[in-house]
Write a protein that binds this DNA or RNA. Structure first.
Lengths: 196, 196
DNA sequence: TCAAAATATGAACAGTGTTCATATTTTGTA
DNA sequence: TACAAAATATGAACACTGTTCATATTTTGA
């Protein structure tokens, strides 16, 4: 990276960092071009010298949040025995992360992405993320002959859709209204999906 | 209803009708207090003499859309044989309706509801809607002893979460990117859920 | 017919994202 | 070191958003 590129990336990181902090703290309803710039210590207009619009900035946070989520999941599941149990624990921890940071769920699944080749890649990053988290463990299951590769493909898709829906209904429609019920339901359904 | 109440309801209906038309036509991104009022033939300020805010107006459309969706589903499934097959057809038609009207999906599952007793009722209306659509047929299955009441309770919950997730990923993250793949996946997963 | 009540309305406000001309700073050369 | 040129930061302005409120208009009833 040239001197210039380093400096430019540093500027971008200030804005990205500010965006992440607001999303994890005050939440997405507090996020605006002006609030981001203020937290970064610049004018809102400066932001436009580094990003084409605020959506670009927002979606640049996805990778960082995924990294953080992955670390959360790995820590939560590190003592779980390998195989099916670990996959279940991974899926549940993945969901827990979004309950803890609802605004991250919004960015990942709700915030609109204008159609473009770049955004298609971001989209893919998002919807293949759970698969990525479980990949190693599913491979282990295939090696152990507890699942075929074909079965795994279907299960991953189903887990992904299921958990996304469970989260959306809980976070946006308060269903179930109690967190305990949500967690119980999540566990039950994830286990069921693994059993089929 | 008193004369006054009739007139007031009529005014409300003008705004509700306008809102529904915009949502089904130009979509939610074209929906604003001013666009609704213009379509209704009044000033935007008049709207506030009948609704406390635009959210109240938007969520008053839910019942109408559910009615419409129900008619769509009933028409699509009227020739399907009773029992499990009809439930599957119902769930798929339900999803199809939202693919046809993505803005209705937004209202139902994405648009934020401020916390209140009134909104809790709207929320319940939404997340129990699929159950309502399938209720009669599930009862038939219970009577036929193909499912127990306990099983039905779990299956309904799972169908609900699953379809919500499938729709969210398709409509907001273009996953899968092809409608055919979406429909195939939807069918497969609904059938799987019924089989467990 | 006319006062009183009900209703409709535009101005105004605070917020949003974005653009652009300009002020400021940094850079490289003379 | 001085200065012109390029790079960068910025506030004003614009077109939107939802909402409030004083006021203009219409309807009602005596």
């Amino acid at each position: 990276m040239s001197r210039k590129e380093i400096q430019e990336q540093r500027m971008k990181d200030y804005f990205i960092q500010a965006t992440k902090e607001i999303l994890k703290g005050e939440g997405i309803q507090a996020l605006s071009v002006r609030s981001i710039a203020e937290k970064a210590g610049y004018s809102f207009a400066t932001l436009y010298n580094y990003f084409k619009d605020v959506k670009e900035l927002i979606f640049l946070c996805v990778k960082d949040f995924q990294q953080e989520c992955q670390e959360y999941v790995e820590d939560k599941t590190k003592d779980t025995e390998r195989g099916e149990k670990k996959i279940i624990a991974t899926a549940i921890s993945y969901a827990e992360y979004f309950v803890q940071y609802p605004s991250v769920f919004e960015i990942f699944f709700i915030e609109k992405l204008p159609n473009s080749a770049e955004n298609a890649r971001i989209s893919e990053l998002i919807f293949s993320f759970l698969e990525k988290l479980c990949q190693e463990e599913f491979q282990y299951c295939i090696d152990q002959k507890s699942f075929t590769a074909e079965e795994v493909k279907e299960i991953v898709k189903e887990l992904n859709c299921l958990i996304t829906g469970v989260l959306l209904l809980y976070l946006n429609r308060n269903y179930p209204s109690d967190y305990g019920d949500f967690a119980k339901n999540l566990k039950l359904q994830v286990e069921k999906t693994m059993k089929k």
